[in-house]
Nucleic acid binder design. Sequence first.
DNA 1: GCGATTAGATACACGACTGTAGCTTACGCT
DNA 2: AGCGTAAGCTACAGTCGTGTATCTAATCGC
Lengths: 202, 202
Amino acid sequence: MNERDGRTRRRGEELISAIHTAVLQEVLEVGVGRLTMDGIAKRAATARTTLYRRWSDPIEVLVDALYHAHPVEEPAPGADDLRGDLIRALQLMVKWTLSPAGLAVAAILTDPKGSAKVSDALFEKVFASRGGTFTSTVLRHYAERGHFPAELLTPVVADIGEALITKRLLDTGKPPTDVDLAAIVDQAILPAIGLMPPPASH
Amino acid sequence: MNERDGRTRRRGEELISAIHTAVLQEVLEVGVGRLTMDGIAKRAATARTTLYRRWSDPIEVLVDALYHAHPVEEPAPGADDLRGDLIRALQLMVKWTLSPAGLAVAAILTDPKGSAKVSDALFEKVFASRGGTFTSTVLRHYAERGHFPAELLTPVVADIGEALITKRLLDTGKPPTDVDLAAIVDQAILPAIGLMPPPASH
DNA sequence: GCGATTAGATACACGACTGTAGCTTACGCT
DNA sequence: AGCGTAAGCTACAGTCGTGTATCTAATCGC
């Protein structure tokens, strides 16, 4: 994978992606508020001059890194298994949340400063690129096939899964386990669309 | 209200509460990451020396301010009105979230740095002081009176309301309206405890 | 291989924040 | 009225980040 033989200087794509990696790591360690050109440069093992040639402040570097981050994996509702597909959709969300880009986004969202500049770029990249939320893709699929009344699929209902995962991450700092995800599906999402969960197994 | 007649120097309680107010304002403007003794001092119109006499870094000032913030108002389930009490509980949460202390807490929770130092003090103050979440107080009350099966009141279910409000605040930055709160109660919480919402009025 | 490009390494002056020290004087108590 | 406490001011050296300028040599395209 490492293409740098005897070369001592990175250029173009290689250099830039090293910088992108560096910002994302940096923002995790110090937070959005303490991002500095200096810190990014040191972590990327490059000179500050190189950064200023392309960006004019640390936030721009961060936004650029997010923009070039790998796109979000989309849930693909498959067989006749609403419950399983919902759990898989939530697993995808957890997976993304724990990715460098996901963690960076979390670090940004509640930061008072970046709101204007960052949040816009953020929504375009993270939310608009995907059709909507993780679970709503699945829910829409099954609603269209008549598994439950489509009018129950309100914006609130579409948010339940994501909201509970977000809250758990904020509260405990730990990602939810698969058992937690199943509990969210059985105890919150399925009841909201009029489907009783399977009786708890004792 | 203003007791300072011809006096030019504040002392004790008066001075400290001015400083507390200052930190909370400051953290909203610059974020946790950019809190400085200097900024707090300037905003409180006092000298840095005064701050150092009591605290040793900006985070300590912030924690102290949160610790002395007004306690969270608790929901008081009243008449035989589960739906109304739930909405009122969520209104309380929104109200607290928009208070200076609530906003400060939001600014802190996702900050990578303060995690160790701040979060502990935070949980003690904000979460432990109250019995649990806003809605769970109400839900427990009605579960005990047999309005719905107590075994449906799981940790996940107790979190639904708070989670949806948190997500809405993160997504839109705007507080939910009373209509939004009612939607959350009708479409997410009530179904989860086995109660069908009243038919939507067209 | 040569020439254009540009990464990388200094160096610099500037400003912001730090933590401490020393001093003056307003305040509250008795 | 007098005294101890502490608020408020000023000054200082030290550190860190900024933005720019200058020079070098590594890399790429032809």
